[in-house]
Design a binder for these strands. Structure first.
Lengths: 144, 144
DNA sequence: CTTTGATTATTAGCCTGCTAATCAATAATC
DNA sequence: GATTATTGATTAGCAGGCTAATAATCAAAG
């Protein structure tokens, strides 16, 4: 059997390399990829609970918790307990957390250009569509 | 800026979900994804050094070393020192390491079907091609 | 009102990736 | 031949993913 020509194998290789690449490029602005993905979610709307953010990002609660600790140490977010439910915490952006968005956007654009530079305009659209399909498959079937 | 619609973001999400999915399905046959990727390389040709395997898999030497320890504990491979160079070790499959291939193949086919079931035949080909392109971008030139 | 069950955050521990730093052995140079 | 540089494996430690297990709180029955 030709394992190496399967889509699973190919996708895994690209996945690892892409994550690694992201880490390197985002490290230049002193952030880690997991932190950035969480920040992106908070820039959409902060004040949510950890469990909600985990659901949105399709990752497990302990992962959110660990990543959050790093962001708090970096001064980008706060973890506040609110009166409505003593179990949960609400995650808010600090001014620094809001401000760092500009730096992330610039870096993210560069990263995006690096990847897309390898593809034609048509390929970009097709890739986006196919990835969306896969994402829907994974997020859909496993979050239920 | 719409981070969520970038290819980088999309790819990262799919990457994480795919890895997670692989771990779960391979866990059913008591293996981890990293171990399986290393085994696949050894099934092609064993007896190579760690540094060569690392190069082939595009991962760092410490990662190979750790994964290997797990495979040795599982009884799938051996790490032998040979006379030609006292620094290096040679990695060989045990009979169990050869035998487990059958189980992995069956599971891998199922995993592959699950993913490809979401796509048409044309989409599969295009996806493979685009992923190969990205792989070459990240890894440089390496034909399979 | 009390017991039982769900939910939320957290901790501990594992796997897979990384870099940096060691150590031993080989290769290269003077 | 002695010194220096390079190479290969390893260790330590971090990030990001996971599951399992706790503790605390809230909700629901009884």
């Amino acid at each position: 059997m030709k394992f190496h020509s399967t889509v699973s194998h190919l996708l895994s290789g690209v996945a690892t390399a892409h994550k690694s690449h992201l880490e390197r490029r985002l490290g230049e602005i002193s952030l880690h990829s997991g932190q950035v993905f969480l920040l992106m979610e908070l820039w959409k709307r902060d004040g949510r609970r950890q469990v909600d953010l985990a659901g949105e990002l399709n990752i497990a609660p302990p992962t959110i918790n660990k990543t959050l600790t790093g962001l708090i140490d970096g001064g980008y977010v706060t973890r506040d307990r609110v009166e409505d439910d003593a179990r949960s915490t609400r995650i808010f952006l600090t001014p620094a957390g809001v401000a760092v968005r500009e730096k992330v956007e610039a870096q993210w654009l560069e990263i995006e250009e690096e990847i897309l530079g390898e593809l034609t305009e048509a390929e970009r659209l097709i890739l986006s569509e196919l990835l969306s399909k896969l994402k829907h498959f994974y997020f859909g079937t496993e979050a239920e």
